[in-house]
Amino acid sequence: MTTIATDLALQMERVSKIYSVGDAQVVALDHVDLTVDADEIIALVGPSGSGKTTLCSIAGGLLTPTDGSVIVGGQDISRYSPKQLTRFRRESVGFVFQTVNLVPFLTARENLLVVDEIGPRTGRRARDRADQLLDELGLTDRSSNLPAQLSGGERQRVAIGRALMNEPDLVLFDEPTSALDTQLGDQVVNLIRHEMKSRGTAAIIVTHDDRITHYADRVARIVDGRISDPGARDD
């Protein structure tokens, strides 16, 4: 595993992703350049089908790019094998997905601990960390509830806790508030900003929601697989 000395959380250079559907080819990402600083929060906005989810998936090691290089926390993952990517996802990134985020037969606390269970176990340390995260997220008295016994906002908070369990370099949020009402969405985004900033963790938040862009350090706009103005700071 090669590690490149850098203080960037993410460095994407000329990344392309082309899907082949039968004979047709869909260019989902077209030579994208994007960098995210170590403690930066970026809002990624763009119309539907513009390639936001694809970009997140590549940054998080769920997909490999067709072309270009992807460096996350100093690791060049663009040529990783599926096994290496699995380990990378387990150790170096956090995900909060749009819909399914929790294992239905595990309690809130166990959904956090599962991150430790699927890798080399640390036991006590993981339990302490889970309790601390649940406390910070205001979920201490919900910790033994199953997902079905939690509200939408609580579920999303548990998912955020799970994404932070492995002390990731980069957390990827794919439309974290789309299933929530305005007020709840605001709360969750507030919480995300607080958690990221207090830890100095970088994040990419994919959104349609204009309110979120206010919480971000920078807004990147993507249209037809191309990022416009990747370097500009918004605030």
């Binding site: 699995t86 380990r87 956090g94 997905f97 399914v100 991150v115 699927i118």
Partner: peptide, 10 residues
């Protein structure tokens, strides 16, 4: 699928 996505080896 979720577990695989967050890094659980198959």
């Amino acid at each position: 699928t979720l577990l695989r996505a967050i890094g659980a080896p198959a």
